[in-house]
Amino acid sequence: MQEYLLSFLIVTGAVFTFIGSLGLARLRDFYTRLHGPTKATTLGVGCLLIASAVFFSTQGEQLSLHEMLITLFLFITAPVSAHLLAKAALHLRLKSLAAIPKKAEE
């Protein structure tokens, strides 16, 4: 039972990690590419880390929760780096599929 849960979490996590990178490679302008890694990859790695916590808690003699630290850290930092990247891209006037609003150009 626990093995099925672990396998499910690991495969789900890997699939989301892959989809995040696929978005990075496949989409057509910088701003849309930004969406893949910030969301899909974060959840994917989160799933893998939860799988790791479950694995080591049931294998070892004591509870292992330190994986939660990386998950928490990634969930806090992912939007910050996405915001900074988008801000840098707007600053450099990268070409975009969507019209850049006037408010961003000041």
């Binding site: 701003y31 930004l34 969406h35 910030t38 969301k39 974060t42 969930f75 992912a78 939007p79 996405a82 915001h83 988008a86 801000k87 891209a89 707007l90 408010k103 961003a104």
Partner: peptide, 10 residues
């Protein structure tokens, strides 16, 4: 940034 299809940019 973390919710459906939107990223805050500026």
């Amino acid at each position: 940034s973390l919710t459906p299809g939107t990223v805050s940019a500026l």
